[in-house]
Design a protein around this nucleic acid. Structure first.
Length: 299
DNA sequence: AATGCCTGCAACCGCCACAGG
DNA sequence: GCCTGTGGCGGTTGCAGGCAT
């Protein structure tokens, strides 16, 4: 027994949308809003499944969609967001006004994934695919878990953004936060994420918790810690985004409160610096001198 | 010119979460 | 607490157009 279809498929049109259909859909939604997607096709005079209408609207017909090719800046941003959020295309799209999750997913699968592979970066973990030597020079490069790597990226990006903003006037900061769409640099985007629900989850989880990073999968006390959370515990998905990743941490601190050992910080720093293998980051002021100063002057 | 292969993208499919009854 | 309907999401497919042979 197969799964029941989402809607009655007999007599419904499939495949590419015609201009006529597009006009019908746009006209109806402009007049009435989409309301119930299930009943929309009938009301709008379309021989389409409601799901198909929703998809067509959200991915193509919505007036706020920015059509056209992705700019190099946008591509960089997608890569950086993917490093933090993983394959959560909707979450990535939410940080990129005018772009749809489908569009970003397609961009990733057709361009960016291959590009990363071609320069030796694993598109899933954002780690170098071939590590020729376990140690480089006097400083041994740590082999961190993907979780740690994502945490490091997340934290470092935020630190860099905060460091940069701390040097700007407070007026500039308020302008940035009140008009996030005007932000243009990648670090601004990270700051926006930090102040979004993703960052909020991160901050909430870290409140009152001090210590060094400790992935839950590697500790025995993880479950008890998580169970004491006021929110009902949901088994974290094996996805390495900012939120579920944070859920997997038992003892973590925000960078401002970080009291971890120098070794740990250095580890995280070099972990994240691995992204520098990508040429775009080399030219992207990713590790600004301010960040380095922040690191060097750490008490 | 014909054919086959490759690529990009729109659309579909199936699963999941959530709200309401 | 269970069931059902609905919307949303991510993975995958299929087609059209471009390119190479």
């Amino acid at each position: 027994m197969g799964r029941a279809p989402c809607c009655e498929k007999t007599g419904l049109k499939r495949g590419p949308w015609t201009q006529e259909e597009d006009e019908l859909l746009v006209e109806y939604i402009k007049k009435n809003g989409h309301g119930s997607w299930r009943s929309l096709p009938k009301l709008a005079g379309l021989l389409r499944c409601g799901k198909s209408c929703r998809l067509r609207w959200t991915n193509y017909l919505r007036p706020d969609i920015k059509r056209g090719p992705f700019s190099p800046e946008e591509e960089k941003l997608v890569i950086q967001l993917h490093a933090i959020l993983g394959n959560r295309w909707a979450a990535i799209a939410a940080q990129m006004p005018g772009r749809t999750d489908n569009e970003i997913k397609n961009l990733w699968n057709t361009h960016l994934r291959k590009r990363l592979l071609s320069i030796g970066i694993d598109p899933q973990t954002h780690e170098p695919t071939s590590v020729s030597s376990p140690s480089v020079g006097p400083l041994k490069r740590p082999s961190a878990s993907p979780s740690t790597r994502h945490m490091a990226q997340w934290e470092s990006a935020r630190m860099e953004a905060e460091a940069r903003l701390s040097m700007e006037s407070s007026a500039s900061v308020s302008v940035l936060l009140s008009s996030p769409n005007k932000s243009t640099t990648s670090t601004d985007y990270f700051l926006r994420i930090w102040h979004s629900e993703v960052g909020e989850s991160f901050q909430n989880l870290n409140k009152g918790k001090m210590g060094c990073f400790s992935p839950a999968s590697q500790t025995s006390e993880s479950n008890t810690t998580i169970e004491t959370e006021p929110k009902p515990y949901r088994e974290p998905e094996p996805r390495l985004d900012g939120v579920t990743f944070c859920q997997g941490f038992t003892r973590a601190s925000s960078p401002c409160e970080m009291e971890d050992s120098s070794d740990t910080s250095l580890q995280l720093f070099f972990d994240f610096a691995g992204l520098n293998d990508m040429s775009f980051l080399e030219s992207n002021n990713w590790f600004s001198s301010s960040f380095l100063r922040l690191w060097v002057n750490k008490p």
